[in-house]
């Protein structure tokens, strides 16, 4: 136990924050601890947290993907436009929508892994460009009228009280945990994140790993975009706009270092729980959305500042001569 604690100090801190939040929320509202609210908690942000899982890989690898929210919008737009043209079965439109996301990831991945451009710049261009592509496709239209089964999958529970998106999330999470923390691919992701040079000299195909991660990131964003469209029942060019901030915040709050090389799936899941609970609790207390965003921003700053200060106190050495 103490061994676990020393290696997972950050996760322990998160756990405490989470428990405090849950107790606070439960005291605040009698509805909070019900199973219905628990499902609700996830359902309202399910698309974001699906992308969070893929983003954790990218950041542990030492890169960043700012484009995810725009790729979500782009995928949904591709799907919606195919539905309007009406020439193909809708299921195929869904598949093409998701593949459009993977294609977006492939293009960015090639620029980053093969040509060697910084991911911050490439995905910044992607953030603006794919949002632009969604707007080019949809202009100012709002496209709805999807087949009934599609809306139902997005808006109604599938297994008992559990909706499809939630099942997908937990499936992705399980796969991600195995791949990242139990498989050789995951080891490579960590090693590259720690030092791309060391990884290269160890014979790891750095650019191949990076390329695959960006394709997966795009694919996941595409899936999330389509799921979001199903939940909303309509698609606009601005679908999922500004989600990237929340997504990256959750990953970093989970103890994943922005420099790459460290972080665990467990920490990320705890951060997801914490953010969702805080937002939910603030919502129950009638605090509006922008205020919630501010609290999450504060949490992000605190989550990095506090360990930094602790670390500095613990390892205080005689100040080096300037």
């Amino acid at each position: 136990m103490s061994d676990w604690l020393s290696r997972h100090r950050w996760e322990a801190v998160l756990l405490v924050v989470l428990v405090v939040t849950i107790i606070g929320n439960a005291a605040l509202s009698p509805f909070y601890l019900g199973f219905g609210n628990f499902i609700n908690l996830f359902w309202l942000s399910i698309e974001k947290i699906i992308v969070v899982v893929a983003m954790a890989f990218v950041i542990i690898n030492g890169e960043i993907d700012l484009s995810v929210a725009s790729v979500m919008g782009f995928s949904a737009a591709v799907m919606a436009s195919m539905q309007v043209s009406g020439d193909i079965p809708f299921l195929l439109a869904v598949v093409f929508g998701i593949l459009a996301g993977a294609l977006a990831g492939l293009v960015q991945g090639l620029l980053i892994a093969r040509i060697g451009l910084p991911s911050l710049v490439v995905t910044l261009a992607g953030l603006i460009g794919f949002r632009g592509a969604a707007r080019v496709i949809l202009e100012d239209r709002s496209i709805g009228d999807f087949p009934e089964w599609f809306d139902r999958l997005g808006q109604q529970p599938l297994l008992g009280p559990i909706p499809l998106a939630l099942i997908i999330f937990f499936a992705i999470l399980a796969v991600a945990w195995v791949v990242l923390e139990r498989g050789s691919f995951g080891r490579k992701v960590y090693i590259i994140g720690n030092s791309a040079d060391v990884a290269r000299y160890s014979g790891i195909g750095v650019s191949g790993v990076k390329l695959r991660l960006f394709i997966v990131s795009g694919l996941t964003a595409g899936l999330a975009g389509v799921l979001f469209a199903a939940r909303l029942g309509s698609v606009r060019g601005s679908l999922a706009e500004f989600f990237e901030l929340d997504i990256i915040t959750m990953v970093l709050l989970g103890g994943v270092s922005i420099f790459g090389g460290s972080g665990t799936m467990f920490g990320v899941v705890l951060a997801v729980f914490t953010v969702l609970n805080i937002r939910n609790g603030l919502g129950l207390a009638n605090v509006d959305g922008i205020m919630q965003t501010g609290v999450v921003g504060l949490l992000l700053l605190g989550s990095v500042l506090v360990p930094n200060l602790i670390e500095r106190r613990r390892t205080r050495l005689p100040a080096p001569e300037p």
Partner: peptide, 23 residues
């Protein structure tokens, strides 16, 4: 002085400044 990466700090204050303004 807090030794936090700029991208994290300014992502945080992007939200924080906006919230303060909104309040």
């Amino acid at each position: 002085y807090g030794r936090i990466p700029a991208i994290i700090v300014t992502l945080g204050t992007l939200a924080l400044f906006r919230t303060m303004l909104s309040l």
